Amino acid sequence: MFSTLLSVFAAASVALASPLAPRTGAWCSGLGITYDTASNFTLTALNTTLPNANSTGVPLVAGQNGATDGAEFEVLSTWATYPYLDFPTMSLNAGALVPNSANGVPSYDMAAVAGQPLQFFTTSESPSGEAAQIYCAIVDTDPDFEGPPTLAVNGDADNFALCMNGDGPYAQNNVVWRPTSDNNGMYLYETCYNVTLQIVGGNA
């Protein structure tokens, strides 16, 4: 399975080195050179406080976050704590970030709430409401080191963290936006560390 993930990342990394199309939507306002539409990329989390094993950080996948009648819920989890490829890649659709389901069932992003994990839902039924147009990709324009684009939500690319949602053998390390100790038990605040979300690969 790990070799499968590596092959997905390798295939995805061959494109998206430059902005696809600048956008002026509110979700990209004031962020510099940006785009908000791309398909079939992967996400990684780069630790901003400690050295990483590589320049793109750890792979992220859509991890499980419960289910209800007709729908499943997902969060962004590290591959190391949720080693499954139910959603091999991600897409940006005019500011909406959605996991691409391996079985073709549509997925939708949910509004990002400060102090909570980034959340998504997957359903074959017609969803109530529209996908949230809150995400934007920021192009790295540093002439000395042009890294991969970074992801922003609600105009913020600097306040993501990885936080463990428990301490058991199946606990997941999930992406949280603006973590707080007052989180109703959704994650262990003392385990959180700051990360930058990076976009690897993709196409228009």
Rank of each mutant, 00 (worst) to 15 (best):
P106A: 09
P19V: 11
V175W: 02
V200W: 01
T4S: 15
A137C: 13
I33R: 09
S101R: 04
A171R: 00
G25T: 10
F160Q: 03
V75G: 00
L31W: 08
A11E: 13
S3V: 14
S18R: 14
L60W: 02
C192P: 01
E190C: 00
G66S: 05
D142M: 04
P99F: 09
G168R: 03
A96D: 10
D69W: 11
W177C: 06
Q116C: 09
F73K: 10
S91Q: 07
A157E: 14
A137E: 09
V61L: 05
G185Y: 01
A62E: 02
G104N: 05
N159T: 07
Q64C: 05
G129S: 08
D142A: 13
V61R: 04
T68W: 03
M186S: 05
A132L: 11
T81K: 00
P88V: 05
A94W: 10
T150F: 03
E146I: 12
D144G: 14
T78A: 05
V98C: 11
E125H: 11
I33Q: 12
V195D: 02
L20C: 11
L20E: 08
P83I: 06
N159H: 15
G63K: 01
L92H: 08
A53P: 03
A114N: 10
Q198A: 02
S128H: 11
G63Y: 00
C28E: 06
Q116T: 13
G168A: 03
E146T: 15
A21H: 12
T44C: 12
G95F: 08
G129M: 07
F41G: 07
T150W: 00
T44F: 07
A111M: 11
V75D: 00
E146A: 14
V176Y: 00
S13F: 06
D156F: 12
T56P: 05
G115N: 06
S7G: 03
T68V: 13
E190R: 04
A67W: 11
C192F: 00
A45L: 08
G201V: 01
A62T: 01
N103V: 11
N203C: 07
G95I: 08
N165L: 01
S126Q: 14
N154Y: 08
E146L: 11
V98L: 13
F73V: 07
S101D: 13
G185C: 02
T48A: 06
T89M: 09
P149W: 06
T34A: 09
Q133M: 11
I134K: 12
Y193T: 01
I134A: 15
L60I: 06
V195P: 01
P83M: 06
S7Y: 07
N194P: 02
G70M: 10
G70W: 08
L43F: 10
V195Q: 03
T141Y: 07
L31A: 10
V200C: 01
T81H: 02
Y82D: 08
T44R: 11
Q116G: 01
L188C: 00
V153R: 03
D109M: 06
N65T: 01
A67I: 03
A102F: 12
D109G: 11
A94Y: 12
G57V: 04
